Simulated scan of single mutants.
Amino acid sequence: MPADRFVEQLNAQIANEFAAHQQYVACAVYYDALTMPQMAGFFYAQALEERDHAMMMVQYLVDQDSAVKIPGVAAPQTDFADIVEPVALALEQEKRVTEQINQLTRIAREEYDFASDQFMQWFIKEQVEEVATMSDLLTVVKRANDVEAIEDYVQRETAGEGADPTAPAVAGGA
């Protein structure tokens, strides 16, 4: 059974992941309205990833016979000054999530909760990838001279990404 401190913090992280989901939907809608289908699709996919992260955490708590608290979340930012701002926001969000994931891992280790520590290892790997992806995208969006260059980059760089077979189970997943 996971340590109480870990369960409490993982439930808080479920809220953070659902909030990230909502924020990415808002970013996707912004790009959709600008007729930037590649950027919109990228952020819609990111939103689903964040939702799945929350549901992986839910499944872990269910599997561990621990209490799950499904939270409400604050409304996301929906107005942006330009096409750079949503990506900059996303990068800051991913950096913040990385800190939260590291804190969860620290708690598991302090509590000698080895199963929870092991569970968090996939999320650590995932956050390295997420920060790198958003950092690269921010560089491209800032540097690009036109929308088409941004759209081409996103299409080229996100083609062929598949599911990670090492990912934890998603609650309600097949």
Rank of each mutant, 00 (worst) to 15 (best):
A54N: 11
Q9N: 13
T98A: 09
N16W: 09
Y60S: 03
R156F: 08
E92S: 12
V141A: 04
Q64N: 06
Y60W: 10
N145W: 12
F80P: 02
L138W: 08
T98Q: 05
E99S: 04
V147T: 08
P2V: 06
A144V: 08
E8T: 15
D4H: 09
K125V: 10
I83T: 07
P165I: 05
A47Q: 04
N16P: 06
H53T: 02
G173Y: 11
G41A: 14
A26F: 07
V25A: 12
D52H: 12
E110D: 14
V84Y: 03
H21Y: 15
K95W: 04
A20G: 02
A26N: 12
M120R: 13
D79G: 00
Q100F: 01
D65A: 01
E92N: 13
A12E: 15
D117M: 07
Q23T: 09
E99R: 08
E148G: 01
E161G: 04
E85I: 03
T166G: 02
R5L: 13
F43G: 02
Q22L: 15
E8V: 14
W122D: 04
L138M: 08
L61P: 01
A159M: 11
A108N: 00
A26Y: 09
A108H: 01
R96M: 10
M39L: 14
D4V: 10
S66P: 00
F6V: 08
R51G: 01
M39E: 07
D32F: 05
A15H: 10
A20I: 01
A115Q: 15
P165D: 05
E94F: 01
D164N: 15
E85R: 11
A115T: 15
E148D: 07
Q103K: 10
L10C: 00
A19N: 08
I101C: 02
G160L: 04
Q23R: 13
Y60A: 06
L34H: 14
E129Y: 13
A132N: 12
L10W: 00
I83Q: 06
G160H: 03
K95G: 08
Q100H: 02
E129K: 13
A3C: 09
S66R: 09
M36V: 08
F42V: 06
P86R: 13
D63K: 09
Y112F: 05
M55C: 12
L48N: 10
T158Q: 05
L48K: 13
G172R: 10
G72I: 06
A33T: 08
N102T: 06
V58R: 06
R109N: 14
F6A: 12
